[in-house]
Design a protein around this nucleic acid. Structure first.
Length: 635
RNA sequence: GCUGGCGUAGCUCAGUCGGUAGAGCAGCUGACUUGUAAUCAGCAGGUCGGGGGUUCAAUUCCCUUCGCCAGCUCCA
């Protein structure tokens, strides 16, 4: 029998051709954690056999590939269980996703939580059977026949579209699913799993197709990892900005006003005001100028901008004013362009950086509205830069610096960045696209920011950089977008007088850092779990006198702190201090200032923070501490 | 928009297999003068999301409409 050499990371091993990788891994003592192998870069099942000399990497759950395989095998396990419990369910597709997996079934009714329990119990049983999972390869005809026999029409539809034979399928017990693999070697490998939810989903994601029943689940090799994940889901629930928004009295959305329209209560409004002040001040410091624009404009403006053509489905019906149609604005850009157009512009003037907290209204389908994260009226932290083509790169560099500064202020320092390039339908010349895309890319590189290219995902009018921030729970949120626009300058015919005395067309860059104030606020609520840093907290300190005897002293403290610019409240009700503390704590007030006879006598404060730690300090010390936290925006 | 679920007091939630509803918290009133996450007592509070239908009778059953939630799709 001939031998070949397998090269593992750091060592080699000679094995006989035809040996299953399973045996090789077993001999290395790594069978337990190994899910599959990569042979010369190709993922393979453990039961597959050694064919030739090769570089072999062990795939474990710790790698993204490992997770994918593990979850995909989990989805097969679930599908097998569903077929055993509900034989009439037709299988469709069931991939691994970010934090788990799902499988879509065509079933006569939605699955209930009780169904999920039954399915989960069946999964446990199948895991106990520890069925070997084996790969089979079939011709297209064989595959179609097989799944026809098994009564799986969706599978045969999928097979019909595959034109790279052979077609592979995986079998465990008498369950067979169409799949490219690889998979874990047996059902017993799936250790800890949980079915999370079920909901409708369209066949192939199109609402024209039949609604299928999707079951979401997740799985881990170790029980404690599953528990940690479930705990995180709990934590996410607890942080839901809609729940905290109500509890902390930050905002509301009223039926009587309409869906997707936000009321900012005083507690939310003061946070917004603080955010906006910070935003404006930072922009002025970064060389922007502030502008304002109206909420409606003549329909003709939107015709000229092209919004009426390209953005119609997000715009509201026009209103009639003195026989003239006007339109509620879905964007701010045309207004800023009109500011540009109000003068003759010279190349010496460029770039212009005009920023506006511009409130826009967009029609969103009712099913997509979601708290503050998806609304119909919102304020963009918008800016438009008008520059010469040779200034694109330096402007983008500045925007990137500025963005990271702004986001860091809120503790967002980890991003996923996407560079979207020219789509199939586009305006402007390919050369311009190339130039602008290169400028964006070069700026990202100079800043040392890691990014991914999203080919063809640019907007029709120009390439863009999108940044997703990662919150404290590791969830990502799309906020920042930086878009080059060749279209609007063209449509509005804006120009500047060049060095050569001729008219040139400026480049326009749209950018929003937070995206929208509403959405960003929603993200912040969840990010901070409602416990805002001192500079943002609606109430920064609350004086809690123990009895009526300390009323005067408490009042003086409040006045002093208020006078220093600190948002300080006073709870002088005839209540026990335990209750006052409880309420202030639930409202997540950063500093609770307990004053009793002792403090009044010593002219001190018993300062309790949100963590429940108390220290005694003087008013001066506390004031300095709070002012310092406000100034540095930490704490 | 689609599919499913839900809508009962300011909030969180019970309940009625059809006979017009109940708790805790919040609110109000009173007592208590209080030491680091809930003092006690009393009172009041709901055309059971809106409209229509079936019925002697609807919060309950049916239809419709609005809104919310989850998912799909789409996006700041």
């Amino acid at each position: 029998m001939s031998e070949v050499t397998l090269r593992f990371d750091g060592h080699e091993k000679k094995v006989a051709i035809g040996t299953p990788f399973l045996d090789v891994i077993k001999s290395l003592g790594k069978l337990k954690e190994t899910i599959a192998v990569q042979v010369n870069g190709q993922p393979r099942d453990l039961p597959s056999r050694v064919e030739s000399d090769a570089d072999v990497t062990l795939i474990t759950f710790d790698s993204p590939e490992g997770k994918e395989i593990y979850r995909h095998s989990s989805s097969h396990l679930m599908a097998q269980a569903v077929k055993e419990v509900f034989p009439s369910a037709k299988m469709t597709i069931g991939p691994a996703i970010e934090e788990g997996f799902y499988y879509d079934f065509d079933f006569e009714r939605p699955f209930t939580p009780e169904d999920l329990d039954k399915i989960e119990a069946k999964m446990t049983e199948i895991v106990k059977r520890d069925l070997p999972i084996s790969r089979m390869e079939l011709s297209k005809e064989e595959a179609v026949k097989l799944f026809q026999q098994r009564g799986e029409p969706y599978k045969t539809e999928l097979i019909e579209e595959i034109d790279t034979p052979p077609i592979s399928a995986y079998q465990q017990g008498d369950f067979i699913d169409l799949c490219t693999g690889p998979h874990v070697p047996s059902t017993g490998k799936i250790k800890a799993f949980k079915l999370i939810s079920s909901a409708g989903a369209y066949w192939r994601g199109s609402e024209k197709n039949k609604m299928l029943q999707r079951i979401y689940g997740t799985s881990f090799p170790r029980r404690e990892d599953l528990d940690a994940h479930l705990k995180k889901l709990e934590e996410i629930k607890k942080r839901d900005h809609r729940k905290l928004g109500k509890e902390l009295d930050l905002f509301s959305i009223s039926d009587e006003i309409g869906p997707g329209l936000v009321l900012w209560h005083p507690n939310g409004a003061i946070i917004r005001k603080t955010l906006e002040d910070f935003w404006r001040e930072a922009h002025v410091k970064a060389g922007y100028e502030l502008v304002f624009s109206p909420h409606i404009a003549r329909l003709d403006l939107w015709k000229q901008s092209g919004h009426l053509q390209f953005y119609k489905e997000n715009m509201y019906a026009p209103m009639d004013i003195d026989g003239m149609p006007f339109e509620l604005k879905p964007m701010n850009c045309p207004f800023h362009i009109m500011i540009y157009k109000s003068h003759l512009r010279s190349y010496r003037d460029l770039p212009f950086r005009w920023a506006e907290l511009g409130t826009v209204y967009r029609y969103e389908r009712s099913g997509v509205l979601h708290g503050l994260l998806r609304v119909r009226g919102f304020t963009q932290d918008d800016a438009h830069l008008f520059c010469r083509p040779d200034q694109i790169e330096s402007e983008i560099l500045k925007v990137l610096d500025f963005t990271t500064f702004v986001l860091k202020t809120f503790g967002f320092d980890s991003y996923d960045i996407y560079l979207s390039t020219r789509p199939e339908k586009f305006v402007g010349s390919p050369e311009r696209w190339e130039q602008a895309t290169a400028a964006l890319e070069s700026a990202l590189k100079q800043k040392g920011l890691a990014y991914q290219i999203d080919p063809g995902e640019g907007v029709f009018y120009g390439p863009k950089i999108d940044m997703k921030i990662k919150d404290v729970l590791g969830r990502s949120w799309q906020c920042t977008t930086i878009q080059v626009d060749f279209n609007l300058p063209e449509r509005f015919g804006i120009t500047y007088r060049g060095e050569d005395g001729r008219e040139h067309q400026p480049i326009m860059i749209h950018r929003a850092l937070m995206g929208s104030i509403e959405r960003f606020f929603g993200i912040l609520i969840e990010h901070y779990a409602g416990a805002f840093p001192t500079w943002l907290s609606p109430v920064q300190a609350k004086v809690l006198p123990i009895t009526e005897r300390q009323r005067d002293y408490a009042g003086q403290i409040q006045q002093r702190l208020r006078g220093a610019g600190i948002r300080c409240a006073l709870d002088d009700r005839n209540e026990k201090v335990g209750l006052k503390i409880r309420e202030a704590q639930l409202m997540k007030v950063p500093y609770m200032l307990v004053v009793g006879d002792r403090e009044a006598a010593d002219q001190t404060l018993s300062v309790r923070n949100r963590a429940g730690e108390s220290t005694t300090m003087t008013l001066e010390e506390l004031q300095k501490k709070i002012l310092d936290e406000i100034a540095t925006r930490v704490g």
